[in-house]
């Protein structure tokens, strides 16, 4: 009987430890696409950028709008511009990694396209940043990508 109680206590303590480990994770904020959009538009550096729809998401990233909880995609109308602000809110964390891979493939294609003649575009593409946390994935190609990544981080983790 003593042995049983000992085992029960041990299993309870281990479970308690596992629960503490999981529950102590700081939760990400539940940020809606609209919040990202508004915060982004308040940024000075967003000037000249226009909102793109799900067709663009499919064409450029092979991602289906309906598969995700929401997205915000801004770019410049000029075809020679590479600036992009994209935040994707996935339905679950399993979707985040494939989304990031889609961003990386997009970056590679853009680099292939501009390599050799688009020095300014290449400069932006080289310092592009990808954000990945929980159900959020983001791609920022900008003059100062850290600034926009900071904005995303503040909204999701702040």
């Amino acid at each position: 009987m003593k042995k049983i109680i000992l085992y029960e206590v041990a299993f309870t303590l281990v479970l308690a430890g596992i629960l503490v480990l999981f529950l102590s994770k700081k939760p990400l904020n539940n940020v809606m696409s609209e919040t990202f959009r508004q915060s982004f538009l308040e940024e000075e550096s967003a000037e000249g950028m226009e909102a793109w729809d799900g067709l663009r998401l499919r064409r450029d990233f092979a991602l289906e709008e309906a598969d995700y909880e929401g997205f915000v995609l801004y770019g410049e109308p000029d075809t020679m511009s590479v600036r992009i602000f994209l935040v994707l809110k996935c339905r679950n964390e399993e979707q985040t990694k494939p989304a990031v891979q889609a961003f990386e493939r997009y970056l590679d294609r853009q680099k292939e396209a501009f390599e050799g003649y688009g020095a300014s575009q290449m400069k932006l593409l080289e310092k592009a940043q990808i954000y990945e946390k929980g159900v959020y994935a983001a791609l920022v190609i900008a003059d100062d990508p850290e600034e926009w990544i900071r904005l995303i981080t503040e909204l999701t983790e702040g």
Partner: peptide, 10 residues
């Protein structure tokens, strides 16, 4: 009350 950040283990 704070909703803990645990996602459903698949």
């Amino acid at each position: 009350l704070r909703v803990p950040a645990i996602s459903l283990p698949i």
